[in-house]
């Protein structure tokens, strides 16, 4: 049973199969992304009423919160790929792992900068050294660490394993980010959506937020497919299937 499972697993991770599927999926993902983005932005910037305390500045939520959610989600995807890469030595998992890092770093950067742009008018400060902001900054450094370490080691298989270990160790930061607003006193507002009781946000504000979160998640998948595809070609350059691909492209 185990052997059937691993064989299936390996086929799923086969480079050619992945390359073809990625190419087929991309147009659909683009369409879905455009749909979510347009409806989300329209809902967030036009339909949703201004906040009774924060006025129109609250609309920054529609990029800030999805980016912050994704910054943690991408990290989890990266760490899980790292675990798979370490345990089963699957090359595709290694490529997903390293492809996640720049995307995750981008989302973290967006969350930090939009946070500063929201903090200035609301708190009167671009930055405060509180737990939420500091742990998110550490997340950015973890992503940059992964990118730096991967590029520093010549042998890409060894580099992937080193990076996988770093990614797994860094997981401790994720619950710290999430619970930081409950564990420590902070200027940052508490969770309004991911609470066990009903979310404390009006439905007209919530729906665009969920649409934007969906758009960001689809965007992550698109960017991940693009990067993983490159990593795959780069590593498998001399292989027969790449040769075939090149010939097909030449005949087009």
């Amino acid at each position: 049973m185990i052997s059937i499972l691993t064989r299936w697993f390996h086929r799923l991770a086969s480079p050619v199969w992945f390359y073809r599927i990625a190419g087929k999926l991309l147009p659909w993902l683009w369409a879905l992304f455009a749909l979510l983005l347009v409806t989300g932005l329209y809902g967030g910037l036009v339909t949703a009423p201004a906040d009774y305390q924060q006025g129109d500045s609250f609309r920054i939520i529609y990029v800030h919160v999805p980016a912050a959610w994704l910054s943690m989600f991408v990290y989890m995807v990266m760490a899980v790929s790292g675990a798979i890469a370490l345990i089963w030595r699957i090359k595709l998992a290694e490529m997903v792992l390293v492809s996640c890092a720049p995307i995750g770093a981008s989302f973290t950067f967006i969350a930090l900068v939009t946070g500063a742009l929201w903090g200035k008018p609301m708190w009167g400060a671009w930055w405060v050294w509180d737990a939420r902001l500091t742990s998110e900054l550490i997340l950015l450094f973890l992503y940059l660490g992964v990118i730096g370490l991967y590029n520093a080691i010549e042998d890409k298989r060894m580099a992937s394993r080193a990076v996988a270990i770093l990614a797994l160790v860094g997981i401790v930061n994720i619950p710290i980010i999430h619970y930081s607003v409950e564990w420590w006193n902070t200027l940052h507002q508490g969770a309004t959506v991911t609470k066990f009781d009903k979310p404390s946000i009006h439905i007209d504000m919530l729906i665009p937020l969920l649409l934007m979160a969906g758009a960001f998640k689809v965007f992550f998948v698109i960017s991940l497919l693009l990067r993983t595809r490159n990593e795959l070609l780069e590593r498998e350059l001399p292989r027969q299937w790449v040769k075939q691909l090149v010939e097909e492209n030449a005949n087009d």
């Binding site: 129109d56 500045s57 609309r59 920054i60 990029v63 800030h64 980016a67 967006i110 900068v113 939009t114 742009l117 929201w118 200035k120 008018p121």
Partner: peptide
Amino acid sequence: YVWGSLGMT
């Protein structure tokens, strides 16, 4: 602040 955030994103 709002357009700056969106633009940067």
